[in-house]
């Protein structure tokens, strides 16, 4: 696992993540959020680990629709 420059799990980000979940980030903050997700591999990895861990058992089988290449 890469060591993130910005730690997604840092307590300092708790309030920011809560606002993101609540949909109350400004356009500028959303843009910065996307920029960090795109460019910070460690941050993105931890973020995706967190999202995956929130999946309810069983949902993944229902939702699984791995994108397939066009024929």
């Amino acid at each position: 696992m890469k060591t993130p420059k910005i730690d997604f799990l840092a307590p300092e980000l708790d309030a920011f993540v809560a606002r993101w979940v609540g949909g109350s980030l400004s356009d500028a903050e959303l843009s910065e959020w996307r920029r960090v997700l795109t460019n910070e591999a460690g941050f993105r990895e931890n973020f995706c680990d967190w999202i995956r861990s929130l999946r309810e058992p069983g949902w993944i089988r229902e939702a699984s629709s791995v994108t397939r290449r066009k024929p």
């Binding site: 799990l9 307590p11 708790d14 309030a15 993540v17 809560a18 606002r19 979940v21 609540g22 109350s24 680990d49 967190w50 861990s53 929130l54």
Partner: peptide, 25 residues
């Protein structure tokens, strides 16, 4: 955080999920 009324939304499950991820790490 809970006492800072101006900080919305306050979600205990959300904060505990992040706290648990830190605990686990």
């Amino acid at each position: 955080r809970w006492q800072r009324a101006e900080e919305k939304p306050f979600s205990l499950p959300l904060f505990l999920t992040r706290a648990y991820a830190r605990f686990k790490a």
